[in-house]
Simulated assay, not measured.
Amino acid sequence: MTGRSAVFGSEDRRAGTSVVAEALRIAGRDRRPVFGSAVLAGVVALFAGGGIVAGAFAVSWGLFLEAGRAAETAIADEDSYVAYADQWDDLVKVAFCVYPLLLLVAVVLIAWLLTAQAVTVAYARERAAAGTPAGVLTLHALWRRSRPHLGAAVRVQLLTLVCALVPGLAGLLVLVAIQSEMVPGVVWPTYHDPATAQFILVGRILPVVIWALGFALLTRFSLATAVRVTDNCSATAAMRRSWALTRAARLRTTGICLLGTVAVAVAFTVLRWFGVFVAHWAGLVMLAVTGGNVWVTGVLVLVVPVAVALVAVPFVLAPVGVLLGCLRERLDGGVGGVRVLSGVSVG
C-alpha cells in the first residue's frame, strides 16, 4: 500500500510540474491577453477601490478633525486622552460600510481575472488541436469571449467566499472564546504566565487545523470558474464539477493551489513594502492639507501600502489563473481533451 501511494505521489508531482510548465508557456506566448486583463483589473481596482476609500475619508473627515482638536485641547490642558475616544463608534460604522464594498470589488475582479485566463487557456488549446499557428487573442476578443461567463463567475466567487468564511470564522471564534475565558482549563498567556500545553493545543494548533481544512475546501472549488467557461454550466454545477475533478487529484490540486497562494502572498508582501514609499509622500500631502492633523494622516499611511499592493497584485494573480485553467484541462481529458468555447470568433 505504501509503494502504491509513493507511485501515485510521484505521478502527481510529475503531472503538477507539467501543468506549471504549460501554464508558463501559455502565459509567455499569450502575455497580451493575460497581462492585459491584469492591467484592466488594476485600473478598475484603482478607480473603484480608490473611490470607495476616498468616499470613506470624506464621510469621516469631520470625525478626524474633531479627534485632532480634542487631542490638542487635552495636550494643552495637560490632560490624558485616548485617541478617537468619542469618534470610534462612528468610524467603525463607516468601516463596516466600506469593507463589504471593497470585498465586492475584489470578488468581481477575481471573477474577471479567472474567467479571462480560462478563456485564454481554452483558446490556446483550440489552436493547438486545430494545428494552426498561434494567433493573437486581442483584448476585444477576450472581452467578448469572457462577458457571457462573468455573471456566473461572480456567483462562483461569492459561493466560494461563503464556504471560506465558515472555517475562517470558526478558527477566529476559537481564539475569541479562549480570550474571553470561555474554554475551561485554557488560559491566554501573559507576560508572567507562559503558554500552557492546553493553550498551545487549543489556541494555536486547533485554529491552524481549522484554517487548513478551509484551504483544502477552497482548493476543491478552485477550478469552478474554468469549468464554467468550458462547460457553460451554472455556478453550482461548475462547483460540483470542480469538486468531482479534484477528487482523484487532491494532492496535485492542493500543491498547485498552495504554489499559487505563496506566489500571491510573496508578491503582496513585496508590493506592500514598495507602497510604504508612496505612503510617505501621501502622508506629507495629507499633513499639509489638514494643517498637521496626524490622526487622519496616520490612518492614510496605514491604508496606502495595502492599496498599492492590491492594485498591483492582479499581475501575479493572472498567471495563477492560467495555472488553474491548465489544471482544469489536464484533469478533464488530459492533454488531448479540448473543449470548444461558445461560438464567438476571434477578432
Rank of each mutant, 00 (worst) to 15 (best):
330 R>C: 08
267 A>Q: 04
46 L>Q: 01
265 A>E: 09
133 P>A: 13
208 V>D: 11
237 A>L: 13
324 L>I: 02
192 H>T: 15
342 S>K: 07
205 I>S: 08
24 L>T: 10
216 A>E: 08
197 A>Q: 02
131 G>H: 07
12 D>N: 05
283 G>I: 07
305 P>T: 01
95 A>S: 13
342 S>R: 10
259 L>G: 11
186 V>I: 08
6 A>H: 09
37 S>D: 07
43 V>Y: 01
244 A>F: 02
231 D>S: 14
127 R>W: 07
264 V>T: 13
226 A>M: 04
118 A>W: 00
232 N>D: 14
151 G>K: 00
118 A>N: 04
229 V>Q: 04
27 A>P: 04
304 V>Q: 06
203 G>Q: 06
3 G>R: 00
105 V>C: 11
54 A>M: 09
199 F>K: 03
107 V>D: 04
287 L>I: 05
102 L>D: 11
259 L>T: 12
198 Q>L: 00
190 T>C: 10
313 V>M: 12
71 A>T: 09
43 V>M: 02
90 D>A: 15
231 D>V: 05
223 L>K: 08
280 H>A: 12
299 V>C: 13
345 S>G: 02
45 A>G: 07
232 N>G: 02
23 A>H: 00
14 R>A: 14
200 I>Q: 10
182 M>P: 09
7 V>I: 15
60 S>A: 15
103 L>V: 14
103 L>I: 11
276 V>W: 08
292 G>E: 03
167 P>M: 05
92 V>I: 14
117 Q>T: 15
227 V>K: 02
311 V>H: 10
262 V>D: 09
60 S>Q: 06
212 A>Q: 12
257 C>F: 01
197 A>C: 00
79 D>A: 12
9 G>D: 08
135 G>D: 15
49 G>I: 07
266 V>I: 13
82 V>S: 15
45 A>L: 14
187 V>T: 10
291 G>Q: 05
288 A>F: 13
7 V>R: 15
